[in-house]
Structures are given as structure tokens and as C-alpha cells.
Amino acid sequence: MTLTESAPAEASPDGADRAITTSGLAMRFRGGQLAVDHIDLAVPHGSVYGFLGPNGSGKTTTIRMLLGLVHPTAGTFAMLGTDLRALDSVLPRVGALVEGPAFYPFLSGRQNLARCDAADPSADLPTARARIDHALDQVGLLAAADKRYRAYSLGMKQRLGIAAGLLRPRDLMILDEPTNGLDPQGTREIRSLVKQIAADGTTVFVSSHLLAEVEQICSHVGVMSTGRLVFQGPLSELRSRGEPRILIRTTDPPTAAEVLGKLGLADITSTDGQVSAVLGGQPPEKINAELVHAGVPVAGLETARPSLEDLFVELTGEGFDVNG
């Protein structure tokens, strides 16, 4: 029997074409602060779901609730078609990395994984050694397996955290900030690792406060802001949400702004040497003609959709750490 065969054959009980569903999930800290404000997540099976939001927006608390580490104050959730009351039965199918990797500094990478595997009440005993080596190999740590965790670099620690999730076949991987604190090279390694995990059919739920780090790998995104889920859907839907704008470079911004106003364009902003406005379906060539007609010297004209980053700033308000 191979691992592939023993994996649940996509058993999707009623309505469970979703890997994670939460309804009204909320967590209020003892201090009274509402860390997670009644969110309704819908993570489709087989997706790579980017769970985005600034630090402190409730991402980690949500993940802790999903993994049974903290108890929701309200609401409910289901993972892989299993209700939270039977969480212990579904957790073996979920690989997790919560708020950064946490291992014993005095043990080696291999010993740490062996300990995780030993703690698993349903691990397959005869294959333990092979599975541990394989997990280490998948994250590229086989060569450093016998080094103490203490001596690992931050990137190696993150990769070991992911390896712990790969000790057995999983249907869902929950990765909390797997790229946190990594250099661009490390971030790229984690990204390709996540891609590889997803390519094998595992649903990946990955949180990050940096949009740019997960944008390339996500099929779906959920955006958190101060405990609320302010957007959820396919990445393409988020992209199409931004209204195209026209941007005019000119030496006479006031007159250009006046012309745009006459044409009925909204949200006109004028800075030194350029004017921009929401295009609102007007053909740009017509606007150009009007500008020239009004004697505005047009040095350049372009239309552009706002970048995803701009949309995120809009969704999450100020303080979103766009550039790290």
C-alpha cells in the first residue's frame, strides 16, 4: 500500500467541497478586545488560500482557533468536512506551522521531527525513519539534519517547521507566516515549497502580512483588517475590483483637471506635473482629444488598474505593511 492510496479518496461529505468553512467565528480576548470579529471563511478544496492582513489583524488567532489551540468565543467551523467538535479526528490530516516554528534548541532537526512523529498517536511506526528523512529531503534539510536546531538559520527553522507538517500525507496545510523574517532567497524557497505541496493536491492555507510574498502562489485570498474579513474570493476577482484610472502628465495640471471635471470623471487628483482620475468607461482617446482641444500640453497619457498592493492598502486601511 502506498501513501497515496491510503490517503482519503477525496471524501467530500455533504457541502464539503471546502477545506475550511467558518461561520461567525469570533474570539474576544480576556481584555475585552475582539481579536477575530465573526468571520466566515470559505477555503475551497485544492486552493492555495492567502490569508492576508497586517500584523495584529487576527490571522494567527484565527489559525489557533482552527487548530484547537484556543477556543472561539462565538461561531463554529469545519475542516475537511469535519465539525470542530471532532477536531482531534481531523487534525492528523492537517499539517500546521503556527506563528513561526517552535522546536527544541538542544535537539537536531532530525531528532525534533522524530519527537513530533512520536507525539502523533496515529503515526505509522514502521515507516517513521523513512518518513522523517523524506520530510527533511522535501524541504532540503537532509544535509543539515543532524545539526542542532539552535544552529539553524531562520530559513532553515521555517523549513523544518514545514517539514513537521510533511511527516505524513496531509489534505490541508496551514502555514502561519512561513516567510516571516526571511531574506528574498529564503522567501523564494518557501514559495516554491508551497507550490510543490499544492501541486501534489494538498489545500494550502497560508497567512502573510506581505501581499507580495504570496501573490504569485495564491489562487484565493482572504483579507483581514482589525479582526474582520474585508475581502474573500479568487485573486482574479480582487484584481478586477480596482477601477481603471487615467493618468495624464502635463505642464498644466489645473487646466487638465478642469477638462476632466467637465467630462464627468470622478475622483480627480492633481499633483505637480500630473493629473489622474477614475476613467469610468470613457474612451481615453476622446479624453486626449478634449485635452488637446482645450490647449493642455499632454506629455503623456496612460490608463492603469490600481496594483493589488494599492487595493490592499485600500482594504486594510493605513498601517498595512505593503513593502515590509
Partner: peptide
Amino acid sequence: MSTASVTEVPQSTPAPGAAPVRHWLRF
């Protein structure tokens, strides 16, 4: 379908019954 790249790792059929004790002893 789970991680296809782990297919080469054999998975033996767990023996029910004695398993919880053996797992606990290992832990």
C-alpha cells in the same frame, strides 16, 4: 490526493488494538 512525491515511502497497515499502547510507549 495527498503529496504524490511521498509515494515511494511504504505505508504499512496499522494493526489496530495494540497500536495506542505502542504509540504511547514511543511518545
